[in-house]
Protein backbone atom coordinates (compact mmCIF):
# COMPACT_ATOMS: atom_id res chain seq x y z
CA UNK A 1 0.00 0.00 0.00
CA UNK A 2 1.66 3.19 -1.10
CA UNK A 3 1.49 6.45 0.78
CA UNK A 4 -0.37 8.16 -2.03
CA UNK A 5 -3.04 5.56 -1.63
CA UNK A 6 -3.72 7.15 1.74
CA UNK A 7 -5.21 10.14 -0.02
CA UNK A 8 -7.74 8.33 -2.15
CA UNK A 9 -8.38 5.68 0.47
CA UNK A 10 -11.56 3.67 0.69
CA UNK A 11 -13.92 4.17 3.55
CA UNK A 12 -16.06 1.10 3.68
CA UNK A 13 -19.36 1.46 5.43
CA UNK A 14 -22.81 0.08 5.76
CA UNK A 15 -26.33 1.37 5.90
CA UNK A 16 -29.07 -0.82 7.35
CA UNK A 17 -32.70 -0.09 6.57
CA UNK A 18 -34.50 -0.82 9.82
CA UNK A 19 -37.89 -0.60 8.10
CA UNK A 20 -36.92 -3.52 5.88
CA UNK A 21 -35.32 -5.62 8.60
CA UNK A 22 -37.65 -8.37 9.76
CA UNK A 23 -35.37 -9.65 12.50
CA UNK A 24 -35.04 -13.03 10.78
CA UNK A 25 -31.41 -13.45 11.88
CA UNK A 26 -30.04 -14.50 8.46
CA UNK A 27 -27.27 -11.94 8.84
CA UNK A 28 -26.23 -13.48 12.17
CA UNK A 29 -26.19 -17.02 10.80
CA UNK A 30 -24.35 -16.14 7.60
CA UNK A 31 -21.82 -14.15 9.59
CA UNK A 32 -21.13 -17.04 11.94
CA UNK A 33 -20.61 -19.57 9.21
CA UNK A 34 -18.60 -17.20 7.02
CA UNK A 35 -16.27 -16.25 9.83
CA UNK A 36 -15.73 -19.62 11.54
CA UNK A 37 -17.44 -18.61 14.77
CA UNK A 38 -17.24 -21.57 17.17
CA UNK A 39 -20.10 -23.12 19.11
CA UNK A 40 -20.68 -23.27 22.81
CA UNK A 41 -21.97 -26.41 24.47
CA UNK A 42 -24.83 -24.42 25.96
CA UNK A 43 -25.78 -21.33 24.00
CA UNK A 44 -28.56 -20.23 26.35
CA UNK A 45 -26.49 -17.50 28.01
CA UNK A 46 -26.20 -14.88 25.30
CA UNK A 47 -23.88 -12.71 27.35
CA UNK A 48 -20.90 -14.96 26.79
CA UNK A 49 -21.60 -16.42 23.36
CA UNK A 50 -20.04 -14.94 20.25
CA UNK A 51 -22.24 -13.05 17.79
CA UNK A 52 -20.26 -10.62 15.65
CA UNK A 53 -23.52 -9.48 14.14
CA UNK A 54 -26.24 -9.21 16.75
CA UNK A 55 -29.86 -8.22 16.19
CA UNK A 56 -31.38 -6.09 18.96
CA UNK A 57 -35.10 -5.71 19.44
CA UNK A 58 -36.44 -2.16 19.84
CA UNK A 59 -39.92 -1.20 20.96
CA UNK A 60 -41.62 2.15 21.15
CA UNK A 61 -42.60 1.38 24.75
CA UNK A 62 -46.33 1.88 24.15
CA UNK A 63 -48.96 -0.60 25.17
CA UNK A 64 -51.33 -2.44 22.83
CA UNK A 65 -52.63 -1.49 20.31
CA UNK A 66 -49.94 1.18 19.76
CA UNK A 67 -46.97 -1.15 20.27
CA UNK A 68 -44.40 -1.07 17.53
CA UNK A 69 -41.34 -3.23 17.08
CA UNK A 70 -38.14 -2.68 15.15
CA UNK A 71 -35.04 -4.83 14.82
CA UNK A 72 -31.57 -3.39 14.81
CA UNK A 73 -28.66 -5.51 13.52
CA UNK A 74 -25.41 -4.40 15.12
CA UNK A 75 -22.07 -5.40 13.57
CA UNK A 76 -18.80 -3.77 14.66
CA UNK A 77 -19.32 -0.08 13.92
CA UNK A 78 -15.73 0.41 12.67
CA UNK A 79 -15.47 3.73 14.43
CA UNK A 80 -13.24 6.40 13.00
CA UNK A 81 -12.89 7.90 16.48
CA UNK A 82 -13.15 11.51 17.58
CA UNK A 83 -12.80 13.74 14.54
CA UNK A 84 -12.58 10.60 12.39
CA UNK A 85 -8.82 10.48 12.84
CA UNK A 86 -8.69 6.73 13.47
CA UNK A 87 -8.47 6.82 17.26
CA UNK A 88 -11.39 4.48 17.74
CA UNK A 89 -12.41 3.81 21.36
CA UNK A 90 -10.93 0.30 21.18
CA UNK A 91 -7.85 0.97 19.03
CA UNK A 92 -6.56 3.76 21.21
CA UNK A 93 -6.68 1.66 24.37
CA UNK A 94 -5.22 -1.68 23.20
CA UNK A 95 -1.91 -2.02 25.07
CA UNK A 96 -0.31 -4.48 22.65
CA UNK A 97 -1.35 -2.99 19.30
CA UNK A 98 -3.50 -6.05 18.59
CA UNK A 99 -6.07 -3.87 16.88
CA UNK A 100 -5.43 -0.96 14.56
CA UNK A 101 -7.28 1.39 12.25
CA UNK A 102 -6.66 0.79 8.56
CA UNK A 103 -6.40 4.25 7.08
CA UNK A 104 -6.59 2.68 3.63
CA UNK A 105 -10.00 1.09 4.22
CA UNK A 106 -11.40 2.60 7.41
CA UNK A 107 -11.71 -0.90 8.84
CA UNK A 108 -10.75 -1.68 12.45
CA UNK A 109 -8.66 -4.83 12.56
CA UNK A 110 -8.26 -7.44 15.26
CA UNK A 111 -5.15 -9.64 15.25
CA UNK A 112 -5.88 -12.79 17.18
CA UNK A 113 -2.29 -13.95 17.58
CA UNK A 114 -1.31 -10.64 19.08
CA UNK A 115 -4.19 -10.18 21.52
CA UNK A 116 -3.44 -11.40 25.03
CA UNK A 117 -6.93 -11.00 26.40
CA UNK A 118 -6.87 -7.97 28.72
CA UNK A 119 -10.40 -7.04 27.54
CA UNK A 120 -9.75 -3.29 27.86
CA UNK A 121 -11.12 -2.82 24.34
CA UNK A 122 -14.36 -4.53 25.37
CA UNK A 123 -14.72 -2.08 28.21
CA UNK A 124 -14.07 0.84 25.88
CA UNK A 125 -16.59 -0.20 23.22
CA UNK A 126 -20.06 1.19 23.93
CA UNK A 127 -21.67 -1.08 21.30
CA UNK A 128 -20.67 -4.41 22.87
CA UNK A 129 -19.33 -5.35 19.47
CA UNK A 130 -16.30 -7.11 20.89
CA UNK A 131 -16.47 -10.67 22.11
CA UNK A 132 -14.16 -12.70 24.28
CA UNK A 133 -13.34 -16.37 23.70
CA UNK A 134 -14.18 -17.72 27.13
CA UNK A 135 -13.79 -21.31 25.90
CA UNK A 136 -11.64 -23.25 23.49
CA UNK A 137 -13.23 -23.10 20.04
CA UNK A 138 -15.25 -26.24 19.28
CA UNK A 139 -17.28 -27.39 16.33
CA UNK A 140 -19.54 -30.40 15.96
CA UNK A 141 -17.52 -33.36 14.72
CA UNK A 142 -16.66 -33.19 11.06
CA UNK A 143 -17.62 -29.56 10.79
CA UNK A 144 -14.04 -28.34 11.04
CA UNK A 145 -13.73 -29.51 7.43
CA UNK A 146 -16.26 -26.88 6.42
CA UNK A 147 -14.41 -24.00 8.00
CA UNK A 148 -13.36 -21.20 5.70
CA UNK A 149 -9.61 -21.27 5.01
CA UNK A 150 -9.68 -17.51 4.44
CA UNK A 151 -10.60 -16.73 8.04
CA UNK A 152 -8.29 -17.65 10.87
CA UNK A 153 -10.05 -19.47 13.73
CA UNK A 154 -9.54 -17.96 17.17
CA UNK A 155 -8.02 -19.47 20.30
CA UNK A 156 -9.29 -19.29 23.87
CA UNK A 157 -8.57 -16.15 25.86
CA UNK A 158 -8.61 -13.51 23.13
CA UNK A 159 -11.03 -10.92 21.79
CA UNK A 160 -12.67 -11.06 18.37
CA UNK A 161 -15.14 -8.98 16.43
CA UNK A 162 -16.68 -8.28 13.05
CA UNK A 163 -14.08 -7.44 10.41
CA UNK A 164 -16.51 -6.37 7.65
CA UNK A 165 -15.54 -9.74 6.10
CA UNK A 166 -12.08 -8.41 5.43
CA UNK A 167 -11.03 -11.62 3.69
CA UNK A 168 -13.54 -10.75 1.00
CA UNK A 169 -11.79 -7.43 0.54
CA UNK A 170 -8.48 -9.26 0.28
CA UNK A 171 -9.94 -11.54 -2.39
CA UNK A 172 -11.44 -8.58 -4.26
CA UNK A 173 -8.10 -6.80 -4.19
CA UNK A 174 -6.37 -9.86 -5.62
CA UNK A 175 -8.90 -9.92 -8.40
CA UNK A 176 -8.36 -6.22 -9.05
CA UNK A 177 -4.62 -6.86 -9.20
CA UNK A 178 -5.16 -9.65 -11.72
CA UNK A 179 -7.22 -7.39 -13.92
CA UNK A 180 -4.66 -4.63 -13.69
CA UNK A 181 -6.71 -2.06 -11.79
CA UNK A 182 -5.62 -2.47 -8.20
CA UNK A 183 -6.95 0.88 -7.01
CA UNK A 184 -10.53 0.31 -8.03
CA UNK A 185 -12.34 -2.50 -6.34
CA UNK A 186 -15.76 -2.94 -7.83
CA UNK A 187 -18.77 -2.52 -5.59
CA UNK A 188 -20.07 -6.02 -6.35
CA UNK A 189 -16.66 -7.63 -5.77
CA UNK A 190 -16.57 -6.71 -2.10
CA UNK A 191 -19.78 -7.30 -0.17
CA UNK A 192 -19.98 -8.66 3.37
CA UNK A 193 -21.65 -11.99 4.15
CA UNK A 194 -24.51 -10.35 6.05
CA UNK A 195 -25.22 -8.00 3.15
CA UNK A 196 -25.51 -10.82 0.65
CA UNK A 197 -27.50 -13.02 3.02
CA UNK A 198 -30.17 -10.49 3.97
CA UNK A 199 -33.39 -11.73 2.32
CA UNK A 200 -35.08 -8.33 2.46
CA UNK A 201 -32.12 -6.37 1.13
CA UNK A 202 -32.00 -4.27 4.27
CA UNK A 203 -28.22 -4.02 4.28
CA UNK A 204 -26.24 -1.96 1.80
CA UNK A 205 -22.47 -2.07 1.82
CA UNK A 206 -19.83 -0.15 -0.08
CA UNK A 207 -17.35 2.71 -0.15
CA UNK A 208 -18.64 5.80 1.65
CA UNK A 209 -16.09 7.90 -0.22
CA UNK A 210 -17.28 6.82 -3.66
CA UNK A 211 -20.31 8.76 -4.97
CA UNK A 212 -21.01 5.93 -7.40
CA UNK A 213 -21.64 3.48 -4.58
CA UNK A 214 -25.18 2.94 -3.35
CA UNK A 215 -24.18 3.35 0.29
CA UNK A 216 -22.85 6.83 -0.44
CA UNK A 217 -26.01 7.76 -2.28
CA UNK A 218 -28.23 6.73 0.62
CA UNK A 219 -26.09 8.19 3.42
CA UNK A 220 -24.75 11.30 1.70
CA UNK A 221 -22.05 11.66 4.38
CA UNK A 222 -21.03 15.18 5.24
CA UNK A 223 -17.22 15.36 5.01
CA UNK A 224 -17.08 18.37 7.33
CA UNK A 225 -17.16 18.21 11.11
CA UNK A 226 -20.52 18.88 12.70
CA UNK A 227 -20.47 22.59 13.68
CA UNK A 228 -22.28 21.74 16.93
CA UNK A 229 -19.82 19.02 17.93
CA UNK A 230 -16.43 18.98 16.25
CA UNK A 231 -15.80 15.37 17.25
CA UNK A 232 -18.54 14.27 14.88
CA UNK A 233 -17.56 13.88 11.22
CA UNK A 234 -19.45 12.20 8.41
CA UNK A 235 -22.93 12.98 9.66
CA UNK A 236 -25.58 11.92 7.19
CA UNK A 237 -27.29 14.58 5.15
CA UNK A 238 -30.24 12.27 4.73
CA UNK A 239 -32.78 13.17 7.45
CA UNK A 240 -33.90 9.56 7.73
CA UNK A 241 -30.38 8.26 8.44
CA UNK A 242 -28.75 8.16 11.87
CA UNK A 243 -25.83 6.50 13.64
CA UNK A 244 -25.73 4.83 17.05
CA UNK A 245 -24.52 7.11 19.84
CA UNK A 246 -23.37 9.69 17.34
CA UNK A 247 -22.88 12.36 20.01
CA UNK A 248 -20.08 10.42 21.69
CA UNK A 249 -17.90 11.22 18.70
CA UNK A 250 -17.04 7.61 17.94
CA UNK A 251 -17.91 8.21 14.26
CA UNK A 252 -19.20 4.78 13.29
CA UNK A 253 -19.24 3.67 9.67
CA UNK A 254 -22.50 1.80 10.15
CA UNK A 255 -25.55 3.95 9.44
CA UNK A 256 -29.20 3.14 10.05
CA UNK A 257 -32.17 4.22 8.00
CA UNK A 258 -35.74 4.50 9.19
CA UNK A 259 -38.86 6.43 8.29
CA UNK A 260 -40.09 6.08 11.86
CA UNK A 261 -39.15 8.89 14.20
CA UNK A 262 -39.28 6.78 17.37
CA UNK A 263 -36.74 4.39 15.87
CA UNK A 264 -34.37 7.20 14.95
CA UNK A 265 -34.72 8.62 18.43
CA UNK A 266 -33.49 5.33 19.93
CA UNK A 267 -30.15 5.76 18.24
CA UNK A 268 -28.88 8.13 20.88
CA UNK A 269 -29.59 9.74 24.23
CA UNK A 270 -31.40 13.06 24.37
CA UNK A 271 -32.15 15.30 27.31
CA UNK A 272 -35.71 16.57 27.66
CA UNK A 273 -36.69 18.79 24.75
CA UNK A 274 -33.41 18.17 22.94
CA UNK A 275 -34.80 15.77 20.37
CA UNK A 276 -37.17 18.33 18.92
CA UNK A 277 -34.32 20.75 18.39
CA UNK A 278 -31.93 18.15 17.03
CA UNK A 279 -34.14 15.94 14.88
CA UNK A 280 -34.20 18.26 11.93
CA UNK A 281 -30.49 18.98 11.99
CA UNK A 282 -28.41 17.13 9.43
CA UNK A 283 -25.21 17.70 7.50
CA UNK A 284 -24.14 21.27 6.80
CA UNK A 285 -25.57 21.38 3.29
CA UNK A 286 -28.77 19.86 2.06
CA UNK A 287 -27.58 19.08 -1.45
CA UNK A 288 -25.24 16.13 -1.61
Amino acid sequence: MTQDNHNNAYKFGMVIDLDKCTGCGSCMVSCMSENNVPFKEDESNKRDSITWMRVYKLTNGKSFPDTEIAYLPRPCQHCGGEGDHGHSPCVSVCPATATDYGYDTGIVSQIYTRCFGCRYCMGACPYHARYFNWWDPKWPEGMEKYLSPDVSPRMRGIVEKCSFCYHRYQAARDKAYYHGDKDHIKEEDYQTACTTACPSNAITFGDLNNPAHKVHQIVKPDPHPDPRNHHVVGKSRNPKVFRLLERLGTNPKVYYLSEREWVRKQGDHYLEGEWDKIKNHHGTTSHG
Binding site: M1, T2, D100, G102, Y103, S109, D150, S152, Y166
Partner: peptide
Protein backbone atom coordinates in the same frame (compact mmCIF):
# COMPACT_ATOMS: atom_id res chain seq x y z
CA UNK B 1 5.83 1.81 -0.28
CA UNK B 2 6.85 4.12 2.54
CA UNK B 3 4.60 2.35 5.05
CA UNK B 4 4.99 -0.95 6.84
CA UNK B 5 1.29 -1.63 6.42
CA UNK B 6 -1.77 -1.85 8.63
CA UNK B 7 -2.42 -5.14 10.43
CA UNK B 8 -5.12 -6.36 8.07
CA UNK B 9 -2.93 -5.88 5.03
CA UNK B 10 -1.19 -9.16 5.81
CA UNK B 11 -3.35 -10.70 8.53
CA UNK B 12 -6.65 -12.47 8.48
Amino acid sequence: TGHQGYCFQCHK
